Amino acid sequence: MFLLTTLLFITGNAALAFILYMSIQKDQIFDLVFKWQNMLREFDLAGTTNKLILYKILGGCLLCFSHFISFIGFWLYLLFILELNAGFPAFWMWIIIYFIYVPTSTTLSLYIHKLLK
């Protein structure tokens, strides 16, 4: 059960990152509703370190965006597993799971993007 849930969350997180990234592109739904590309352009033109970091993780860099979504997805996965209360592993195991979950989900998202673009 634990392994299946983990695999489903990794795959779902990668697919969600792909869908969200495509949705913030020019003339797509999030760009039309929230003016996402204008916001990214303002972050890029500001030139400060904090604004450039926001520019990258909010959609200026596919890898950074995918990694950010995977990072958030891991914490949602952790909350879900803790809610199940299904004999979750010790703290040090969560660190190992983190280092498997986030890179795998990020890489899978990049692969889906490359495959479907």
Rank of each mutant, 00 (worst) to 15 (best):
I10G: 07
T11K: 04
G12Q: 14
G12P: 11
N13R: 03
A15G: 15
A15P: 01
A15E: 03
L16S: 07
L16M: 10
A17N: 07
F18W: 14
F18C: 13
I19C: 11
I19S: 03
L20S: 04
Y21S: 09
Y21C: 00
M22R: 08
M22T: 02
M22S: 10
S23W: 00
S23E: 00
S23I: 00
I24K: 11
Q25S: 05
Q25A: 06
Q25E: 13
Q25G: 12
K26P: 05
K26I: 12
K26N: 11
D27P: 00
D27M: 00
D27Y: 02
Q28H: 13
I29D: 03
I29S: 00
F30H: 01
D31P: 00
L32F: 07
L32K: 15
L32R: 10
V33K: 09
V33F: 11
K35P: 00
W36F: 06
W36Q: 07
W36T: 10
Q37L: 01
Q37S: 07
N38E: 08
M39W: 06
L40F: 08
R41M: 02
R41S: 09
E42I: 02
F43M: 05
F43H: 06
D44R: 15
D44T: 08
D44H: 15
A46K: 13
G47Y: 08
G47W: 09
T48D: 10
T48A: 04
T48E: 10
T49H: 12
N50S: 12
N50W: 14
K51I: 03
L52G: 00
L52Y: 04
I53C: 09
L54W: 07
L54Y: 05
K56D: 10
K56E: 11
K56G: 09
K56C: 10
I57G: 03
L58E: 01
L58W: 04
L58I: 00
G59N: 03
G60V: 06
C61H: 14
C61K: 08
L62S: 15
L62M: 13
L62C: 08
L62Y: 09
L62R: 15
L62Q: 14
L62T: 12
L63M: 11
F65P: 03
F65T: 07
F65V: 07
F68C: 14
F68N: 13
F68D: 05
I69A: 06
I69E: 02
S70H: 14
I72P: 04
F74S: 10
F74K: 12
W75H: 11
W75I: 06
L76H: 10
Y77M: 05
Y77E: 01
L78Y: 14
L78K: 15
L79G: 13
L79R: 13
L79F: 15
F80V: 10
F80D: 11
I81S: 09
L82T: 04
L82G: 01
L82R: 10
L82C: 02
E83L: 14
E83C: 11
E83V: 08
E83K: 08
